[in-house]
Design a protein around this nucleic acid. Sequence first.
DNA 1: ATGTCAAATAATATCGATAATGATGTCATA
DNA 2: TATGACATCATTATCGATATTATTTGACAT
Lengths: 219, 219
Amino acid sequence: MMDDTGSKESSATHGAYLTLRDMILTGALPASQKLKIEQLRTILDTGASPVREALSLLTSDMLVERIDQRGFRAAPANKANFEEILALRCTLEDLALRQSIERATPSWEENLVLVHHRMKKARDKGLAVFEEAHKIFHMALLANSGSPMLERFCSQLYDLNIRYRNLAARSSAYQQRDVSGEHDEIFEATIQGDADRASAALLQHYRLTGEYLARALDT
Amino acid sequence: MMDDTGSKESSATHGAYLTLRDMILTGALPASQKLKIEQLRTILDTGASPVREALSLLTSDMLVERIDQRGFRAAPANKANFEEILALRCTLEDLALRQSIERATPSWEENLVLVHHRMKKARDKGLAVFEEAHKIFHMALLANSGSPMLERFCSQLYDLNIRYRNLAARSSAYQQRDVSGEHDEIFEATIQGDADRASAALLQHYRLTGEYLARALDT
DNA sequence: ATGTCAAATAATATCGATAATGATGTCATA
DNA sequence: TATGACATCATTATCGATATTATTTGACAT
């Protein structure tokens, strides 16, 4: 069976995983919603086994909860959880960024230049494209930490945060701030090897959007 | 079908998960070993679906790796990975312990007294019993951090570390050190609310066993 | 009205079988 | 002897059907 999207990943399970993940991150599947196998089976047009396995995988990402003998549901969302994510993210990304700068190599820096450029270019290519470039940029900042697990944790937390961003406001109101300038500052400080300045800028970046989202979540 | 062990968890998937997890942690399933469904199916005496799903779940714990279209294998083990776990553990547990102490409540402290006592009692009840009490003690130290995710990360890392302990030495040589005294020091400092002393003792505790294990892994 | 129990219903968890895929070995050819 | 195409085998991924388990419904007694 060939994938008509031309995607390189050919596996019902993986396909279901990607789709469901996206649906939860974008809010198409609302928080705490019961996820019935049969229902998803028809949406994804596949068997029960791939759906079930995809849901198991999403459990690891903390996007889905499994209720023993009672199926699955989309992970609940609330302000406390959001703030926990924000705080953890600040701690872990601070650590990862500093380690990356500490161990800086030319190829890491060059890749950073590249993805930073791409992110700037992606600004007027639609939100979805920008979002992807944005994540790639942020992960590239941490990609030299020498600790794959730390990076994995950061990636997970990044996604969880994105989810809250989408839940709080489907609009791109968040773009109204001078986000681009903040990215530039993080980027410049990192390239210059100024860990303190880079980390401060990164945390500032997160906390500003955090405050904005926290307000949106109150309503 | 009733579970003859009388366990409260009645689910083929969950049973398979626990057994496989234990087999990997204890080294019964060696690192990097290919995990064939059929083979496990006979060992666990269950169908392919529960096995498959249990393996998916173990992927989240980083105890199993999934190779797309080529099945599963036990996560590889090497010194670099071990040291990464140790470093991350020190960072995260330090954080969690300090947060727990910061937010100390009587009930948290009382529970700590209880599990500390139980751990001491468990010393001469066999290694398996002690190991369980040991983990409960360490997790109880962090249980008041206010950040379930942080605690989850710590728990995961704890298990991964246990695995290396078992891989390095099935014997209880590790017990030869004055581990009990170290625990007491962590416990006392925590109860007294002395975060610096508690954290220092905790990290010392981890680093000592870390050095011991690192040596064992070299051979 | 209200609470309890049992049957009916809906959903999950699991099984056995089949299809799709990667690994292995063989053989003709250079 | 080395190499690449091809058939064979082993194993995974997936499907459809069944058994198990929760949830709902409604009758009945209080």
